[in-house]
């Protein structure tokens, strides 16, 4: 009978585990949400928000903080008083700004957050839309020592996957460049340098459109109702309010790419083409692997063999036969010869 007993205990244990670990209603996440009210996280989140305001050169108020932290005004006021007492912020009338100590605290958190995002993007197969939330949860429990190790492991990256600069250990960060997409003029070429990852709903729209930092765009139409632009040869339409979440830098005439590129996946069997670029959406180990195989701008590739189920396809790349899946060859841009 005892094994049946064990089985039942096992099942109970399993149910209990679900009860504890379930992401939305599980015990751990409830406790976590309760913990969120704890001061440290609130303080750090508030500092980060203030820093964001400062970086984007907008003013911060009590209500914007309470909105960002989804906290009642009263609670927010308590946090602000605490921050002031710790000499991390100074508040004037209607404007709250960081002290230098507050700024370096904020930069520390920002650094950890962006390193974590970069790690998730390059070293895991976790979905793009989840990066921010995971980093948000982990940034408060990552020590500086761990951040240093992480940075070393990642090869001391400069930017996070959204194109934001990662502050150095001593808190250096370059100043903001570029303009918002809705301020770009008609008929201009530009390249995306930053995509805001909050709010999540908006970001997931961008990621569904396949937009990424480093992408070249061509603005077709900029009106009050909509922003219409071509991105890697495909047309996208965004509302101006959404477009303001994307930062771009105009590209000089000589760097412009006149024609829209084709994707490697469009190459038919026995056709050849020249690689002109690899999408920035190809990241981390996967990107390095491709570069090592010699997939760099200027390389001639030839579609040689299709798998019997149609995917992957083997390409002749510098004398070697390399099989690429369609989701990989979609991210390599080519020019027909």
């Amino acid at each position: 009978m005892s094994l049946l007993f064990l089985l039942i205990i096992g099942i109970i244990f399993f149910v209990l585990l679900i009860f504890i670990l379930s992401p939305e209603y599980g015990l751990i996440s409830i406790i976590r949400r309760m913990k969120k009210e704890q001061t440290r996280e609130l303080i750090e989140d508030a500092l980060k928000h203030l820093y964001d305001c400062e970086y984007n050169r907008v003013d911060c108020s009590l209500s914007s903080i309470s909105g960002n932290l989804s906290l009642s005004k009263n609670k927010t006021a308590e946090v602000i008083i605490k921050l002031e007492a710790m000499n991390l912020i100074s508040s004037g009338e209607n404007k709250i700004s960081l002290t230098s100590e507050g700024r370096s605290y904020a930069l520390r958190i920002v650094r950890i957050h962006r390193l974590l995002e970069r790690y998730l993007a390059d070293h895991t197969s976790i979905q793009e839309t989840e990066w921010h939330n995971i980093a948000e949860a982990k940034e408060h429990e990552t020590s500086e020592e761990e951040a240093r190790k992480l940075a070393a492991q990642l090869g001391n990256p400069l930017l996070d996957p959204h194109g934001d600069p990662i502050p150095s250990e001593s808190g250096e960060i370059p100043s903001r460049k570029g303009i918002q997409l809705n301020k770009l003029e008609n008929g201009k070429f530009a390249s995306i340098i930053h995509i805001e990852d909050e709010p999540k709903e908006v970001y997931s729209q961008f990621s569904a459109l396949g937009l990424y930092p480093g992408m070249q765009i061509y603005l077709v139409e900029n009106s009050k109702e909509k922003i219409r632009f071509e991105a890697d040869g495909e047309e996208c339409i965004l509302a101006p309010i959404l477009a303001s979440n994307i930062t771009v830098v105009p590209i000089l005439e000589k760097e412009q790419v006149k024609e829209s590129f084709k994707k490697l996946s469009s190459l038919k069997q026995d056709e050849s083409a020249i690689v002109v670029g690899i999408s920035k959406a190809m990241r981390g180990q996967q990107r390095r692997r491709l570069l090592d195989f010699g997939v760099v701008p200027g390389t001639i590739v030839r579609a040689q063999l299709k798998s019997l189920s149609g995917d992957p396809t083997a390409y002749d790349i510098r004398g070697a036969m390399i099989a690429l899946r369609k989701n990989q060859s979609d991210l390599i841009y080519i020019k027909r010869i």
């Binding site: 492991q153 090869g155 180990q285 390095r288 692997r289 570069l291 090592d292 195989f293």
Partner: peptide, 8 residues
């Protein structure tokens, strides 16, 4: 290895 530059 294919390279000595990567991080593997």
């Amino acid at each position: 290895t294919y390279s000595l530059l990567s991080t593997s």
